[in-house]
Nucleic acid binder design. Sequence first.
DNA 1: TACAATTGTGTATCAATTACACCTTGTGTT
DNA 2: AACACAAGGTGTAATTGATACACAATTGTA
Lengths: 253, 253
Amino acid sequence: MFTKQQLEDFWAEAGKIYLNHISIDCVVFGFHEGQMKVLMLKSYNEEAWYLPGGFVRKREPIENAADRILKERTGIDEIFLQQFHVFGDPDRSKIHNEMYKNMLPEEQNFFGQRFISIGYYALVDFFNVTPTPDDFSEVCTWRDLNDLPKFQLDHELIFRKALDTLRLQLNYQPIGYNLMPKEFTMPELQKLYETILDKKLDRRNFQRRMLGFGILNKLEETRKGGAHKAPYLYSFDLENYQAALKEGLKSGW
Amino acid sequence: MFTKQQLEDFWAEAGKIYLNHISIDCVVFGFHEGQMKVLMLKSYNEEAWYLPGGFVRKREPIENAADRILKERTGIDEIFLQQFHVFGDPDRSKIHNEMYKNMLPEEQNFFGQRFISIGYYALVDFFNVTPTPDDFSEVCTWRDLNDLPKFQLDHELIFRKALDTLRLQLNYQPIGYNLMPKEFTMPELQKLYETILDKKLDRRNFQRRMLGFGILNKLEETRKGGAHKAPYLYSFDLENYQAALKEGLKSGW
DNA sequence: TACAATTGTGTATCAATTACACCTTGTGTT
DNA sequence: AACACAAGGTGTAATTGATACACAATTGTA
């Protein structure tokens, strides 16, 4: 937690390092135990949660900025990231701005300005992530899509838009590849699709269709330990997957 | 054309009115005589052409900025606009920046800074547009997609990305409605689809499918004047169109 | 060893897409 | 006025893809 002095130093410094008016917010999706998760943070003094975000260095490509921000929150280096929307309402961070506006003169008050935020969504393997709080947060952790907290500012809008985009891009981006672990069972993959699309799919038709795409390798092993028949493990054939996505995985669900 | 003094005044003024570091570039699509067109501008002293663009006022929503910019270039008020990508490479306007960098001290030289550009694509009825040059351009006119000029800066990349997006969104956005005039024939509409998708479609299957969507009104009149059988005219049923798009026009082409 | 739950595989039906043919209409030509 | 030409309008058969549904196999547990 910051003292007032530290905050002021931070802001003064930020203005020298970062571009004015531009921020980045990231919606990081993970998948664990049949549930979609989003990475979120909670401030010390507020009930509402917010999405991982940050700013762009003066000479830094925006993609690198997003990479850098997420590396800090997750520990992961090469993350799958897609820009999905820009949020440019002049009042989108009004509450935030006013909270800070009397603490410093305007030209030093980096947080008092208008920010246009570039939204990225990220897909990560849940097990590779080490959620790490930032300088303003008490907690950084996965939140279940079925049990979301109150959001700060317009972060609910950003999250919703990311989820909508994910749905639309399901047949055009390697979403399964990036969200599933290296090896997984067919029912696990189906659960992912059902969660993203928010509807039930027929088990048998799902399997036939998935295999029909020719993007999966069936492995010898099975997943033991469940109280039932052991399902086969699969992995993605990345080369075929990429090729298939160029055309789109035929005909939406 | 500007004198040096006028340019300097313009820049000094721009810094007071507009947000730093943020620009908007628009790819305006039109359709005329079976050809896709893009609205482009040509500077006085340069061979390369550029896309309509501008900046965001300090308290202006970015959508309004795009509307305002396009109103100036086209004369149209309520334009169909979609954000499609942000271009944030730090060197994307390098040539431009260097061209101007010695003309004014840095803090007054609005054009010398790094710009992150928000890309919008627009769809307009060709006949409603009055192409209007901006302060830096000699010409503002439609260019055929089959006969594109050399582009300034990264504007070719921006254009390409817009066209790719258009293709992907064909089944999810009212693209036909916005590009076609109020009344049109089936062969004309087919030509639009063929142009966007860059492939031939079967005349009879196209017609059946289009009609199957239930988004067209068949009118009594026919388009006279051609040397052949007069085709029927159609108009869009906007309500049904919007409804159909929510689900996506089933199964891509 | 029988049971419950879950996975693996197959088939019949229905809907959608594709490929293709013939007739109609407006214009210009003889 | 008759005709050829070119483009538009409409229909049908064949193929492909999506959906619905059934039964056998496997695993841990009662």
